[in-house]
Design a protein around this nucleic acid. Structure first.
Lengths: 281, 281
DNA sequence: TTGAATATTCCAATATATGGAATATTATTA
DNA sequence: TAATAATATTCCATATATTGGAATATTCAA
């Protein structure tokens, strides 16, 4: 499914429905619910009018309308005559509630703030979600500039410090799967680049800290470390980001300790005990 | 037929739609979807296990399980053996997307940041949602302390600057409806307090700016102004909050201009033209 | 290990969702 | 303004998707 992320919306109009996200199989016996969720997601994806919705779901206008009307009644959708459907306030509510109910979020908040205060730079918290990095919290730094990422953004695993930290425990095969993912075909990285990236990942995995040396934005760098839960599995990662000027090699090394400590503190709050799940093989 | 939920039971009798768009009958023919949403909201409300869920919805465990399983498959819920159900990552996603897709949010962002920079204090953006103030954006200030409200918080209309700004256009009857709302019965405010509050509201409405003089937290004060869309209706409000020490009467007066200007700028970005919908009667 | 609590699957019965066609509501012209 | 197009909404008989009881599987607590 094409992501409707604000950073670069590809098209504003409704295109021909490509591959159908038919998640049939699991969820048998709840067709109406599934279709309702389809409606929700189609609208999140930029569809605004009934006809397009119906075409996308492969249902009649009648059925589609009934589902949409139900969602409007429950405030999951807005409907404005003329502008069509849009995501409703209930989704805002549930989104916020979800964030607050995450033990991770609660455990992390104070630590992130303190890290941001010490480093003066932007601190971010992210999780791995469907193969991409999902930013779930951010504490801005105190410099004269602002790292322009936002909570809710999604970025590629291989090109961000947070992403690399999140996959540090995976096998080299899995790493390979991530590398270059999401790149347009004409910008496929060279084999040499892949090898270098893998070599770096090995180092990061050994150290328990990952760097971003400007893969996405040349002037941006960051230091990230994985957060583990009671089972030792990586469930999130924390990073400190700044511009290259403030991220010379020595500082990145220095920060490594602090970031790792912060990650460890949050991990501890989640029930992790030192030693469980860390690199050993 | 479900009978536990407070917000339905519309049947046979001819509805006499007064001020409120009752959306009667909507949701008919989508029982499964409605029940699915019930599940979602029950879990948002703290229910975690199947038995409790079923009891709450008035459905059998089987049905409830099918719905929950479908929602898990679609990542609207998590299920962890032992901990039960919790809100899932898809809700995070949709929540963020909803926020970003609001024209209001986009129009406001830059203005809020600039206001926060000028005033050094916390700037907040809120909307009226089901009779309460819903905080949808916040730009922290630069003082040594932190206003502890968070995005996603809900507060009472009558006790916050944002809330008052949001209802500035309403009638005195409607104001009355808001006053004291949500208070425990034993803390019902006196008639004198009500009269004083109404008098203040009249002043605020005349000036197009509302103050919070410590109704909720004695040491907190704020200055808020309404944001209007193209139709002139109030759709949101912006506020600057700080501690009393920094919010002496003169400064509140000074801030009034700046806050009102900011609100006007955001309103303009939403298509509002000076004069439309402002106090006139 | 046992027993208790909880989650999950199976199935026939029917209440519930479905879509075609008719209608109402808005937008866009003439 | 009226007439047209475009879109949303309601109606209703039909059959299909959903239901819940009972059986089974899984996890948790001693």
């Amino acid at each position: 499914m094409p992501a409707g992320v604000p950073t670069d919306s590809v098209e504003a109009t409704k295109p021909a429905p490509r591959g159908r996200p038919r998640t049939v199989g699991a969820g048998e016996g709840a067709q109406t619910l599934m279709r309702g969720l389809d409606v929700l997601e189609a609208i999140a994806d930029g569809t605004t009018d009934l006809a397009a919705l119906a075409a996308r779901l492969g249902t009649t206008r009648t059925t589609t309308h009934r589902l949409a009307a139900a969602l409007v009644a429950r405030r999951y959708l807005n409907f404005a005559s003329g502008d069509g459907y849009s995501l409703g306030p209930k989704l805002l509510e549930l989104g916020f509630q979800t964030r607050h109910s995450m033990p991770l979020h609660q455990a992390a908040r104070a630590h992130l703030a303190r890290l941001a205060e010490r480093t003066l730079d932007t601190v971010q918290l992210g999780i791995l979600d469907e193969g991409v990095v999902f930013y779930i919290d951010k504490v801005p730094g105190q410099r004269r500039f602002e790292i322009r990422s936002n909570m809710g953004d999604r970025h590629h695993v291989w090109a961000t410090g947070l992403g690399k930290a999140l996959v540090l425990d995976m096998t080299e095969d899995q790493w390979n799967g991530f590398f270059g993912k999401g790149r347009p075909d004409d910008a496929r990285p060279s084999e040499a680049a892949r090898q270098e990236w893998l070599a770096q990942m090995r180092t990061y995995a050994r150290n328990g800290v990952a760097f971003d040396l400007g893969e996405t934005e040349a002037e941006l760098r960051c230091v990230a470390a994985p957060i583990r839960d009671a089972s030792g599995a990586i469930v999130a990662a924390v990073s400190v980001s700044s511009i290259t000027q403030y991220m010379q090699p020595e500082r990145m090394t220095d920060l490594s300790h602090d970031v790792r400590e912060t990650a460890a503190a949050i991990s501890a709050a989640l029930g992790w005990r030192k030693g469980v799940g860390t690199a050993s093989a």
